[in-house]
Design a protein around this nucleic acid. Sequence first.
DNA 1: AATGCCCCCAACCGCTGCGAG
DNA 2: GCTCGCAGCGGTTGGGGGCAT
Length: 302
Amino acid sequence: MASSSSSGWKNSSNKSSSKTPCCTKIGLKRGPWTPDEDQILSNYVQKEGEGRWRTLPKRAGLLRCGKSCRLRWMNYLRPSVKRGQIGEDEEDLILRLHRLLGNRWSLIAGRIPGRTDNEIKNYWNTHLSKKLISQGIDPRTHKPLMNPNPNIHSHEPPPPLVVPTSISNPNFIHPSLDESSPCISSLEMSFNEVTEGNDSHHEYLKGITTLNADQDHHNLESSDGFIMGFRDMEEDLHHHTEFNNDDVFSSFLNSLINEECAHQQQQQQQQQQQQHPTAKNQVPLVDYTTPVDSSTQSFGYS
DNA sequence: AATGCCCCCAACCGCTGCGAG
DNA sequence: GCTCGCAGCGGTTGGGGGCAT
């Protein structure tokens, strides 16, 4: 780990003179943390607890700004922080959560024990987004990348794009596109379950189906209309429900993740059987350009 | 061995949301 | 209702290490 001090880090007397970084105060240290600083911070937080970051450096005797201390503790020193490689299961979870939540790293991190938002954000930017792109998937939308062919208005179907499903299922991204999709009903069911007895859920479902009305707008211009829908839902939940809101949203999210996971597995099995009725234990492939029968395909690709 | 390039990730910055006064 | 201060979040940066030439 790079915790040694380095004279080369961003200079506090730097670039934008009009902007005022939080630690411009003379004498405050910036850049990589030293083992000594780590020790001081760690000891102090374990003794006094987290919080009051602004005044913590002074109380602890550190020449750092509060933000820097908080970040160091949260991303590195906290005992619960898990070090090491992100596993396949974690990677899969990140992908699914990102598809549901977008770049809400702290929310995603909150559902992956021991991982920090910074770590997940970095992992996404350096590994997963590239992985998706290499598979012809837009990491922002989780949909197949736009056909670079300038003949965009052609009614010809795009060339076949075959991607292993082990990484993710981009078909899921916009259940809002098809009101008849089982995905909408699973959303509805899931949400009914977690908000039973509360009228507010109708608002969210209305929100989801409203997205259908201008699906093209959301697909092309906003490109994360579905995610925005979720954001609205979450915000509304937090504003209106009489329950423990975090628990409600957490349950809702769990149900979505589980639904998707189950659908993915079911879909893979069906496709395996259709394409290779006798083959077993092969990596399933999905042809995104093939029209999907809604009776057998849960997440219709548009 | 020396040099250049690329990638990773720790740490920074600016912005936003929220609570207190 | 307004202002202020703080905590937290997401986007961005750039040092350093690894790899290729």
